[in-house]
Each structure stands twice: as structure tokens, then as C-alpha cells.
Design a protein around this nucleic acid. Structure first.
Lengths: 217, 217
DNA sequence: CCAAAAGTGTTCTATGTACACCCATGC
DNA sequence: GCATGGGTGTACATAGAACACTTTTGG
């Protein structure tokens, strides 16, 4: 009933930087291809903690948002025989990164709009991860995982616009997110160019649910 | 980077029978527990075809609807050490089953409303599979996979009601599914008690998409 | 005082929901 | 002719989309 296979965990790590959605990739020496970072399972008690320590090794961050994406196991997807990859995607809060740490891990951020060529089926995996992120941001509050703890409504709106790839109406956006009751104002404001903005934070007790629009009633 | 683990495929096979959603389970000899049927990966080129041949071995059916559900790999979920289970769920068309074949495979249909006790984390897996099916039927046309090739609108509505566990309005249901243009009438009608019903079939070229209702605009 | 970003309501349209009766057939 | 399931339309409520100007600050 059981068989032995090579099993690994790979991670698709997203963050927002320079007004772009970026993903963390490893260059492969010699052939100009890039790949998704991965880890084995040796010491980890389970798949998710393997993915978490993989992300921690790259970024130094614990407690990032992690979700299983898909398991890829087609024969022929790897030159050294069958490799089964359990792929997770991770979201890092903007500003939580130390650039040195990333360089140390020999990885680099690449904007998803202009990706380099990827090895094996990693382009397919990444495309699927982006689709899942877009989809998920529409019906859940996962967008907050890409923001720092406090943020302005404009920053939140820009996050949504970046991921969805479309412009949103400011008044409708504000009205609906405030009515949803999932964020609350903090006592502070942020000054910069123009009028200072109210800072908000995600409510710990928020239940962000949206009734699905059904195909049939 | 790689490690060896025990890897298997398990399947959650659903069908409609006796006006209930039913799932295919294996009894475990000696302890009254049941489990999800599973297979190894020895000859299969990839994970999905392993799941497909697993379902075929149980039911004799090829070409069933199959979708990867999740990969479970926590240490401690199996007495013989780590087992990583890639779980698929399958939907069988009502009426496509031969009962003898199921008995031959030493499995049995169990209604999801009154499940027996399950081994290991299989109850958790099954609960998740049911949730995913409910969720998926709301925004995709997956409901047709549980019906024979031709069906009446009432049968379709009953399928939805069974899976969603709620009553739907007949007129609204019919209007919306016909407007969606994903089914077409066949030349036949079905006689039985009462007025004969128009038979429909799923359109091969149907694109059943529903714009998601967003959490934010 | 000007540039820059923050903040704020209303109207119109589309979608969803609730609801009750006649129709065609088999027995 | 009656029991059984099939088939049909309308009115009301809710949600979504489009839209432009005023406010507050820093330089």
C-alpha cells in the first residue's frame, strides 16, 4: 500500500515591495534559471512546520501566514526521478523584511509582473499561487497579511489594487470595509505629504466572511 | 534537501444514493473502525492517475471527476511513523455504480449524515471533503458530476438541496440555471408519476462561472 | 497659497428573494 | 376525476456601481 518517494516542501513567498507584488526565488548556478525555494522534511514534525522553517531560514521571520497550495507529483517533473513537492504559499507583511537576511540566503525578490525563467514546473506552480492569492483576497481578509500592523485606508486599498490588478473606487472601498467591522482606528495618524491619514489596525476578533454569490439560488 | 517518507494516495468517493450523499469506506478488521480507501504509487506516473486507478479498482469506473483535496503529513497521524497522504475527492454519477463491484472491493457506502467511527485523522479529512464539496457546488457546476448524463430540473434541484442541506425555491432555481445557459433540453421527456418532465443535459461547451461576491468592492 | 493626499453621500441599476397557481399525465 | 410531480411570472427589497467636491496638512 505504501511506497517510498522523494518528498520535499516548497514555498511561494509573496510580499509587497516597490509598489509591486514580489516573490522570493533562488537562482540556479550556471543556467540562468530560477526556482522556488524548498526544504526537506528531516527534522520537522509535519509538513506545515517544514514550510514554516523553510520560510524562517530564508527571511528570519516566524509566524508568517502560510497555506498549503497544492501537491505536485508528476513523473518527469524532475530530472532525478519522481519528486513529490508539497507547495505552500506564504505572505510577509511589508516592512518586516531585512534585506541582508535575504541576500544571505542567496535568494532574491522578483516582481511577479516580470518574472525570470523558472526551472521545471515552477512557473506553473507560481501562476497557480498568484491565481489563488487573487482569488482569496476577494473573499477573505488575507490582504492584511501583506500589510504592517497599522496602515492607512489608502495603503489597504493600494494593496488590493496591486493584487487584483484593477482600480477600486475610494468611497465604495472605504464604506464597505468600515461597515464590515474588521478594522478599527488606532489613536494615531500618519503625517506625510498632504493631509495626515487615520491609522487603522486589523481587529483580532474580526470574522471576515462573505456570503458567496451562488451559481444557482 | 530531500528525504524519504511513506507516501500514499487516499480517495474520498462521493455519490448520491437513496436520497443521501454517501461516501465509500473500508471496514478495518477487528476494531469496528472504518477508513478512507487508499493506494500506493508504485506503477502510476503521477498522483492524480494513482487516485484514478484507486477509484477504478473500487468501482470499476474510469473518467470520474477527481480533484486534489489536501495533503496530510503530520507526524503521529499513523502508528507506523510518518505517512504522507495526498487526498483526492471523487464524484460518481448516480446510477453508474454496480453494487457487486463495491462488495468485491470490500468497501461500503455510508451516508455522510450517519458516519461510523473512522480511524486516525480520517474523520477530519472527510469533514473537510464535505465542506469543500458544499463550497464548490455553490460557485461551480460540479453538481452535474453527481448526476447521470440526462436529468430533470427537479433532480438537479434535489442534488443541490441534498448537498447544501437546505431547500431551494423552484422558480428561482429554474430561472437562474436556464439563464446561465449551462444546460440544454434533450428531445426526450421522462414519464413517471405526474406530468412527464423535460430532460436536460449539461452542455459540453458550458462555462459555468460566477463572479465572486467580494469582501470589498 | 498651492500641492498633495484624506475624507465624505447620493442616485441609479442590477440582482436576489418571496410567493401561489395551473398543467399534463397515470391510475 | 384525482393524485402526483412539472412548469410558470411578478412585485419588493437589497446590494452594487458610478460619480465630484471639500478638508487638512507641509512646504
Amino acid at each position: 500500500m505504501l511506497t517510498l518517494s522523494d518528498l520535499e516542501v516548497r514555498v511561494v513567498v509573496f510580499t509587497l515591495q516597490n509598489n509591486q507584488l514580489q516573490v522570493l526565488l533562488h537562482p540556479i548556478k550556471g543556467n540562468k534559471l530560477w526556482m522556488l525555494p524548498g526544504c526537506g522534511l528531516l527534522e520537522s514534525a509535519n509538513l506545515e512546520s517544514a514550510a514554516a522553517s523553510c520560510v524562517e531560514g530564508l527571511t528570519g521571520l516566524k509566524e508568517v501566514f502560510l497555506e498549503q497550495l497544492y501537491t505536485y507529483g508528476d513523473a518527469g517533473r524532475h530530472p532525478q526521478g519522481r519528486v513529490v513537492s508539497v507547495v505552500y504559499f506564504a505572505l510577509l507583511a511589508a516592512g518586516s523584511l531585512s534585506p541582508e537576511r535575504i541576500e544571505l540566503a542567496q535568494a532574491a525578490w522578483q516582481p511577479v509582473g516580470e518574472l525570470p525563467e523558472l526551472a521545471g514546473d515552477h512557473a506553473e506552480i507560481l501562476t497557480y499561487a498568484i491565481r489563488r492569492l487573487r482569488y482569496k483576497i476577494e473573499y477573505s481578509a488575507v490582504g492584511f497579511e501583506l500589510l504592517p500592523e497599522v496602515f492607512t485606508l489608502s495603503e489597504l486599498q493600494h494593496t488590493y489594487e496591486l493584487i487584483l490588478g484593477e482600480q477600486l473606487d475610494k468611497r465604495n472601498f472605504r464604506r464597505r470595509i468600515l461597515e464590515a467591522g474588521i478594522i478599527e482606528p488606532t489613536p494615531e495618524r500618519r503625517s506625510g505629504e498632504g493631509r495626515p491619514a487615520q491609522l487603522y489596525r486589523y481587529r483580532a476578533d474580526a470574522v471576515a466572511e462573505v456570503k458567496a454569490r451562488r451559481l444557482f439560488p
